[in-house]
């Protein structure tokens, strides 16, 4: 029977390894439909590894990743993408051997209902101007980030995994990305965001999980942020 209260994404006892090194030690959290959930944590806490484990691109992982009620842990990354999850990597992953347009059109549609190109250009007007650029990596850092987010909006995936989309970007661009994330949430996208910058996260997130040494060590809602600021400074070492 379909459980309407079940989370869209439920991660349980997630363990992950890179070769011999055991990185995730039983990560558990969930993301409900339409939420923006942020993973916070220091460098090396395992945030990226968590996203990669969900996406099926770490060497070895065990535990449970359920999406729309389906277990994904045994699936390959292309099958996971086709289940409706899209990934925007920390290093952005813009392809140098592809033009901007080819980069934008690269991810195939996995479900119906992806955003149209017009809609994506409304969110990122800069992209439209740079469409003719022959090499995706000739764009500025901010434009590459927009390209990396823009291209996964076309695919029809409803859950977006965004790994530090604001890293290294100028304040105006960070604002634009914040605006975009709020617009996407309004359109019904569910977003799992990794951030170090919790000031930025607080402008978009509904809930937070805090990671340390490959575990979730705390969680709270955005409304509880003020009460948790002290603790957060501690956790994040800022």
């Amino acid at each position: 029977m379909l459980d309407v209260t079940a989370p869209l994404l439920a991660v349980n006892d997630l363990q992950a390894w890179y070769g011999e090194s055991h990185i995730l030690h039983g990560v558990a959290f969930d993301v409900r439909e339409g939420e923006v959930v942020t993973l916070l944590g220091r460098n090396g806490a395992g945030k990226t590894t968590t996203l990669k484990s969900i996406m099926g691109i770490v060497g070895n992982r065990t535990g449970s990743v359920r999406y729309e009620g389906h277990e994904l842990i045994a699936r390959t990354s292309d099958q996971i993408a086709r289940a409706g999850i899209a990934f925007c990597p920390e290093e952005r992953g813009v392809f140098a051997s592809l033009s901007v347009e080819e980069n934008l059109l690269l991810p195939p549609a996995v479900k119906p209902g992806g955003l149209s190109l017009e809609r994506i250009f409304e969110l990122f007007p800069n992209l439209k101007e740079r469409l003719g650029s022959s090499q995706g990596t000739k764009l500025s850092g901010g434009e590459q980030q927009m390209l990396a987010i823009g291209r996964i909006l076309r695919t029809g995936a409803r859950l977006l995994l965004l790994d530090e989309p604001t890293e290294g970007l100028a304040p105006v661009i960070i604002q634009q990305i914040g605006k975009t994330i709020r617009a996407l949430k309004e359109q019904g996208f569910t977003i799992l965001l990794v951030e170090q910058n919790f000031r930025f996260a607080s402008t978009v997130a509904d809930r937070y999980y805090v990671m340390e040494h490959g575990r979730i060590i705390d969680q709270f809602a955005n409304s509880e942020l003020d009460a948790n600021v002290e603790k957060l400074h501690d956790y994040l070492g800022v």
């Binding site: 691109i57 990354s77 292309d78 993408a81 990934f87 392809f95 690269l106």
Partner: peptide, 15 residues
């Protein structure tokens, strides 16, 4: 071309 550059990411797009 994309898979030559970064096969992991291309696969994570569903290819």
């Amino acid at each position: 071309r994309a898979a030559t550059e970064n096969p992991t990411l291309v696969r994570a797009f569903g290819i």
